[in-house]
């Protein structure tokens, strides 16, 4: 059953709980993806994570043309034609999500669930045996998890109580007080960094990087950091850019730096939500280039991986 919006503020808005997640920290993990993000990165590969509310996701391939959605839409935003199939007028859609309730073909889906702490813990605890043997645990990711800091803190505090290894995957764009409250229960921080230049950063993500860098420095004093950086051709992939990141990583004594080559994964998802994918003609970095950047970082004495 879909969990619809409730007034209960104790609930968290989650858009996915991924089990057997093996790239978001050590071992076999369960990653809880929190919905809502204060940043709007152009290359965002999970655009469904951005809005801090539930939204409609459309998978046209699953549509059988039964028309159930057309008849229930109070806005008259859905049309069905023989030639074009189902069309959604996103201008009219007000995300009431009634259509998703009547779609049995999983063609109209709701992204985002309001869940209790207990719901999350129930799911997380199922793979305890796998965490124990693999050195894994739980990772809280996003969106930006710190947007729901209170909920997240409660979840990972409960995990810690059960001796589950905890990872926070964050952009670092949150008030320090909130971050600090969460860090108390976190074993390892996956810190995402996009660019060291504030102007460039603002251009590509809609926010500056001052707070992020400040929080990163503060975090490094409390917890080990695993630095992750999306590599976007022409934006942050020059040798100079990477050199700087490597030096920063070294000064913060990070565990390693992961370089995540740009991919177009966000494009289809944008289309499915009626959003415009803002990037055009950005190339996927070549393997050779990624390898060169990796060597550069390793040259500074920092461990580097590509992809995870």
């Amino acid at each position: 059953m879909r969990k619809r919006k409730s007034k209960n503020t104790k609930k968290g808005l989650v858009f996915n709980v991924q089990r057997f997640s093996i790239h978001d920290g050590p071992g076999i993990r369960t990653t809880v993806f929190m919905k809502g993000c204060p940043m709007k990165c152009l290359w965002c590969s999970n655009p469904e994570s951005q809005d801090f509310f539930q939204n409609l996701i459309v998978r046209n391939l699953n549509c059988k043309g039964c028309g159930a959605c057309v008849s229930v839409c109070p806005q008259g935003a859905i049309k069905m034609s023989d030639r074009k199939g189902r069309q959604i007028d996103w201008g009219k859609c007000n995300q009431c999500l009634i259509c998703a309730d009547v779609c049995i073909y999983n063609s109209l889906n709701v992204c985002g669930m309001y869940v209790d702490i207990k719901d999350v813990l129930d799911e997380v605890m199922r793979d305890m045996d796998f965490y124990k043997n693999s050195g894994g645990g739980v990772t809280i990711s996003g969106g930006e998890a710190l947007l729901q800091a209170e909920f997240v803190a409660a979840v990972i505090a409960a995990c810690k109580k059960m001796e589950i290894h905890t990872v926070l995957d964050t952009t670092g764009y949150a008030p320090w007080a909130k971050m600090k409250a969460v860090l108390k229960f976190v074993d390892l921080v996956l810190f995402d960094l996009k660019h060291l230049d504030c102007v460039q950063h603002r251009k590509a993500t809609s926010v500056g990087n001052e707070l992020i860098l400040e929080n990163m420095n503060r975090t490094a004093k409390e917890r080990r950091i695993w630095l992750r950086m999306p590599v976007i051709s022409g934006f942050n992939d020059s040798e100079q850019d990477i050199q700087k990141i490597a030096i920063l990583g070294k000064s913060l004594n990070v565990i390693k730096i992961s370089l995540l080559p740009y991919h177009e994964g966000g494009k289809t998802k944008c289309e499915q939500m009626g959003k415009v994918y803002p990037l055009r003609r950005v190339k996927v970095p070549t393997d050779e280039h990624m390898q060169r950047l990796k060597e550069l970082i390793e040259g500074e004495g920092v461990i580097c991986t590509i992809g995870s």
Binding site: G27, I28, D129, F130, N133, G135
Partner: peptide, 13 residues
Amino acid sequence: PVFLSYLKTWREK
């Protein structure tokens, strides 16, 4: 190593 740990859990189950 992750896969090997997966097999260990398989055995324990």
